[in-house]
Amino acid sequence: MKKYKHSELIVLGAVMTALFLLMVVLNPGEFLRIGNLQTMAFQLPELGLLSLAMMVTMLTGGINLSIIATANMSGIVTALILTGAINPEAPPPGAGGIILLAVAAGLLTALVIGLLNGLLVARLKVSPILATLGTMTLVNGLAIVTTRGYVISGLPNAVRFIGNGVVLGIPVGAIIFILCAALMALILNRTPLGFNIYMLGSNPVASRYSGVNNTTVIIKTYLISSLYAGFAALIMLSRFNSAKAGYGKSYLLITILASVLGGTSAAGGFGRVSGLVMALVILQVVSSGLNLLRVSSFLTITFWGVIIILVMVMNFFSAKLKERRLV
């Protein structure tokens, strides 16, 4: 029996390789330096975790516009506890426990927001884009109210290690990202929940008639999405060395682009973590490569836009070709 090929992953792999080589050629000796690769590995996790948070909801045919607001709120809660309890100049004994507690509180905040999204989408059947637009605004507002619009800074060094530390030459953030991506792949490919996410994303009516508990699957999906936003919050907290409402706002639309670039269907039901990772590498390679060329970071986002359109156009033609072969 012949295999149905994942032509989108092939297109993506080719684009990734080509861009990587292009950047190596344009920046001879510089692009492949350990320092540069490390910088790339420092930058990617933030967007990477947020994109995973976005992608998992897109697989169910939904979307989560509140991920950035969630991450900020979660980061703010963690930061408030930390700055309240620990003086960074003279960390008290038992600071480790307080840090864990603060992180747990941050993640818990994220989960509460995820639960709200899940209930709105699964129980009230609000369209995901509207539900999360609402929670985005609400959570963002709460973040502004709790911080009075100020930056919360003065975090203990241990927290800064998460985003800036290096273990065996590999940035800690990158290790966290790899673990989280692997965990997501495991959930999606090897658990009943993941299986159901894809089926529900393709046809929620049929999945319901097949005994899938759609409500639970959707709620769990938004919980996972929020949890990943919470993970991203830790990295943001430590890289900015502070928390504030409104950090990383421009990431929101980029996470949608990254997911779609990685082959996640905007209509739901299809998409893989491997594709998303390749997409993230593409975006990072372009961004770092252009940066080495001293090109404005705004031209980078232009290139990102162009790449996504080119890839979509290529997918359009490859789908057309496949169709013609089938007839």
Binding site: L257, A266, S296, L299, I301, T302, F303, G305, M312, F316
Partner: peptide, 26 residues
């Protein structure tokens, strides 16, 4: 872009948002 390549409107316009804005700022 939307008509000829059948790209979902949300994706097309997020991409062009970045393209138009990036070029302007540069």
């Amino acid at each position: 872009l939307i008509y000829f390549f059948n790209i979902p409107t949300i994706i097309t316009t997020i991409a062009t948002l970045n393209i138009y804005y990036g070029i302007l700022i540069v």
